[in-house]
């Protein structure tokens, strides 16, 4: 009889201790989450996560550079020649095969938008330079073509095309 009573009270004790300890654990984790989340980008940083750019002043054959999320972005208005060369390259022979069509918006292929950071080690390439008339990175000699694709040199992949959309014919939103 007393045995059962003891077992009961032991079970009750174990239950309460277990529940209480679980509560303590939940509390500790809930305390930790805001601390961890506070390191994520803050509201003011997120507010600058997109940039709108007015394209109306960019002439054909001209390129501008804007800042987006702390990095340079090249916006190039390509000439007909540049577009033709970019589109007629043999894609399978490229170091990082990618079709020019995949790197521009449909119907807007005169506009090339790429993040101006060399995919090798992060330097900013120079425009209208190099053997392919795209960009040339002076740090270690990577050459990019008029579609921002790597053609020669140590960079492994094409220049990154950031997410962007046309809000109207003269305005794009990056990010």
């Amino acid at each position: 009889m007393t045995d059962n009573k003891e077992k009961d009270s032991q079970t009750r004790r174990d239950f309460i201790v277990l529940t209480a300890s679980a509560m303590a654990g939940v509390g500790a984790v809930s305390f930790a989450w805001p601390l961890v989340d506070s390191l994520n980008p803050s509201a003011d940083v997120l507010a600058l996560a997109s940039t709108e750019v007015d394209l109306s002043s960019i002439k054909e054959g001209q390129s501008i550079r804007v800042m987006w999320r702390g990095k340079p972005v090249f916006i190039r208005r390509r000439t007909a020649d540049e577009i033709k060369i970019a589109q007629t390259e043999e894609v399978s022979e490229l170091p990082d095969p990618e079709n020019d069509k995949e790197r521009v918006k449909e119907g807007k292929d005169e506009w090339l938008v790429v993040v101006g950071v060399c995919t090798h080690l992060g330097c900013v390439p120079l425009g209208y330079a190099g053997e392919y008339n795209g960009w040339f990175c002076p740090c270690h000699g990577s050459h990019y073509d008029t579609s921002g694709r790597i053609r020669k040199g140590p960079a492994p992949t094409n220049m990154v095309v950031p997410p962007y959309e046309f809000l109207n014919d003269n305005l794009i939103k990056i990010g």
């Binding site: 309460i16 209480a20 509560m23 303590a24 509390g27």
Partner: peptide, 13 residues
């Protein structure tokens, strides 16, 4: 809830 639980645990222990 936390405090009540630990109060009960304390009493039992």
């Amino acid at each position: 809830i936390f405090t009540i639980l630990f109060y009960l645990a304390k009493k039992i222990i």
